[in-house]
Design a protein around this nucleic acid. Structure first.
Lengths: 192, 192
DNA sequence: CAGGGCATATGAACGATGTCAATATTGGAG
DNA sequence: CTCCAATATTGACATCGTTCATATGCCCTG
């Protein structure tokens, strides 16, 4: 089939194209129609695979979350897990990966953690990034590297701090150079 | 003039109406046309006073920032500034005001700190809320209540943390009940 | 192999939106 | 009183998300 009437894998193709468009222009400036046009498909074809434009964007957001998770996974794979120094490196590495994602993939970050995707999606407590954060804090705690008595609720505190810094970076409220210092600052606050 | 041809104060009226609409439905679901219709004015009348829809929304965002600043100012006015205990109360009070604004005025918060308003606006380092935060940290520092050596860069760290928690609250990623515990957790991390 | 059903795509249409150009109205300064 | 500049209107355009009726073709049944 040279150019079959049926596309065959429209769903994936649309997510891919939407992902590229979001990366390039940001979710607000991406139209269903332009995505369809890029795939040589009629605009209404999308509705066989997605309920909404928002439904499609949510799929793109999942890719964003996966991309972030992969960055964090790479950090864990790169650092050995044995020494105590490594425990701290793993923690700061995870933080830098989070902020790096925000800096490198501004638009995708905005979609992934924006209102469209956050509503009606899995509780972030079960997402890969959050689990990795929790595990890293547990690791620090097990080795006695945390300041005493601060472990309860620390997940949320650190997550909020990192996520907040990421949004400030994304909005240009703060220059990218401040990212590393911020991570170091967090690490200094929670470790002895 | 009973119903003059000219409105007379369209600019302010549109900001007021837009503010109300944003509070009710969120900035994404507010249209220029509906605002104009609510004021019995033609849609294009707006363009005598605002360059864009975004330009109008930026004015609404300024109101949001002002509302937040007022909440924080009320906290400072309510707490006496003399005792050392009060210094800590002022700090946590400021944080609670910030999160309270996010919880009570979800939509307005999203607009005020969203991409539309953050771009092309005053650097947040000069905004009322940020200045109040800095002053509060200086106060704690002056009284020797901060952990030693952490003051440099603390503004950014605390701001990011609080702002991050606010966005998580706003997106429903975290329940409102966790707000107070979060503030306490931050205070415990930075004070002796 | 024939044929029919079902998932998939099309096309035209609707209502709404942001924006602009041309025109009309008015209050107030000279 | 007259005329101007500010302000509003009208009408139009392109674009958007979405829906409905219709067309297409692949696979499964007989």
């Amino acid at each position: 089939m040279i150019r079959s009437y049926h596309h065959g894998a429209l769903a994936e193709a649309m997510v891919d194209q939407a992902l590229a468009s979001v990366r390039a222009q940001g979710a607000d400036h991406v139209s269903l129609r332009s995505i369809a046009q890029a795939l040589d498909v009629s605009p209404s074809a999308a509705y066989n695979h997605f309920a909404d434009k928002d439904d499609l964007l949510r799929s793109v957001g999942s890719c964003g979350l996966a991309a972030l998770d992969e960055r964090m996974a790479r950090v864990l794979a790169a650092h050995p897990a044995d020494t105590a120094d490594a425990a701290r490196s793993r923690f700061t590495g995870l933080g830098r990966a989070y902020l790096g994602f925000a800096i490198d993939e501004t638009h995708l970050f905005q979609l992934t953690f924006g209102p469209i995707c956050m509503a009606k999606q899995l509780p972030p407590g079960e997402s890969g990034p959050y689990i990795k954060l929790t595990a890293s804090l547990d690791d620090l705690d097990r080795r006695g590297l945390l300041k005493p008595g601060i472990r309860p609720g620390l997940d949320l505190t650190v997550w909020a701090a990192t996520h907040g810094m990421a949004t400030l970076l994304v909005e240009g409220a703060v220059p990218p150079e401040s990212a590393d210092g911020f991570i170091e600052s967090i690490a200094n606050l929670i470790t002895k």
